[in-house]
């Protein structure tokens, strides 16, 4: 079994009030020097079977059509675990 991670972030031009609220709380907690925070989502997909090109392509489609709304969000797909079929991780 392999884990594929899909990270979803709001596009840079989209206002992220949650990230701003986190950023504004930082000085109060003694964290200085952090000028911006943006909050995103991380999906960990446990994949049955090999994570080959075809599986990654399907996950890419899933991320594009469902996990992210590409009108407002960007996403990345990464294979995380080591037991991956050679050549599939890119």
């Amino acid at each position: 079994m392999a884990r594929v991670v899909v990270d979803v972030m709001l596009k840079p031009e989209i206002l992220d009030p949650q990230g701003q609220a986190v950023q504004r709380a930082l000085p109060r907690l003694g964290f200085e020097g952090i000028s911006d925070v943006r909050q995103g989502k991380r999906f960990e997909l446990e994949v049955d079977g090999p994570v080959d090109e075809a599986a990654l392509a399907r996950i890419h489609d899933l991320a594009e059509s469902f996990l992210a709304n590409t009108v407002i969000e960007d996403f990345t797909v990464k294979v995380e675990s080591d037991d991956v079929v050679a050549g599939a991780a890119k």
């Binding site: 206002l15 009030p17 949650q18 009108v71 407002i72």
Partner: peptide, 17 residues
């Protein structure tokens, strides 16, 4: 409707949270 792309754009959380 926006998620279904029958209408353009998207809805996000209110800016004041």
């Amino acid at each position: 409707l926006t998620e279904a792309h029958l209408l353009p754009g998207a809805m996000l959380g209110n800016d004041h949270l």
